[in-house]
C-alpha cells in the first residue's frame, strides 16, 4: 500500500512536468499568405523554437476559420515542384524550425471567408506530449 502511495506521488509529480514540456515550444511570426479571390487552399507559416531537451512533434493544427490544415513540404524532385505531405512537424531539442515559402508550410483548406492583409486567424496546435497551444496568425500580403 505504501508503495502504491509512493507511485501515485511520483505520477503526480510527473504531471506538472508534462505540462511544462508543452511550454518548451515557443511559436513566433505566425502568418498566412493572403490569397487571390476564389482560392480555396492557402499557405501558412511560423517559426517554432524548442527550448527543452526532448524532441516535440506538432501533431495537428486546427482552426475554426479553415476546413482542415495539413503539413506539407515543397520539394524539387524529378524536375518538378511537388507537395510532400508531412504527418508531423518535428522540432528537435534546442532547435528552431521555420515554416516558410517554398519549404515546409501549413496547407490550409477551405477558408470560411476571404481573408485580407491584417486579419487574424486562430490556430489550435496539438503537440506530441499531449498538450495544446492556441496562437494567432496574421494574414499578410506576400
Amino acid at each position: 500500500m505504501k508503495r502504491q502511495y509512493i507511485l501515485t506521488f511520483c505520477f503526480a509529480c510527473l504531471f506538472p512536468l508534462q505540462t511544462m514540456a508543452a511550454s518548451t515550444l515557443i511559436f513566433a511570426n505566425a502568418w498566412i499568405a493572403e490569397a487571390p479571390p476564389g482560392v480555396k487552399v492557402m499557405a501558412g507559416y511560423f517559426d517554432v523554437v524548442n527550448t527543452g531537451s526532448e524532441e516535440v512533434l506538432i501533431t495537428e493544427i486546427t482552426s475554426p476559420e479553415f476546413g482542415n490544415i495539413e503539413f506539407h513540404r515543397t520539394v524539387h524532385e524529378d524536375g518538378m515542384m511537388k507537395m510532400a505531405a508531412q504527418p508531423h512537424v518535428h522540432v528537435p531539442p534546442g532547435k528552431q524550425v521555420k515554416l516558410e515559402p517554398n519549404g515546409k508550410h501549413m496547407m490550409m483548406f477551405n477558408p470560411v471567408y476571404r481573408f485580407f492583409h491584417g486579419d487574424h486567424v486562430t490556430l489550435r496546435i496539438s503537440l506530441s506530449d499531449g498538450s495544446k497551444q492556441t496562437i494567432k496568425a496574421t494574414v499578410k500580403a506576400r
Binding site: 490569397a35 487552399v41 515542384m81 515559402p101 517554398n102 490550409m108
Partner: peptide, 13 residues
Amino acid sequence: YTNCPDVCPTTLQ
C-alpha cells in the same frame, strides 16, 4: 494552377 498554395503565388509575386 490556382489551387497551388505555396509555389505559384510565391512565384507570381
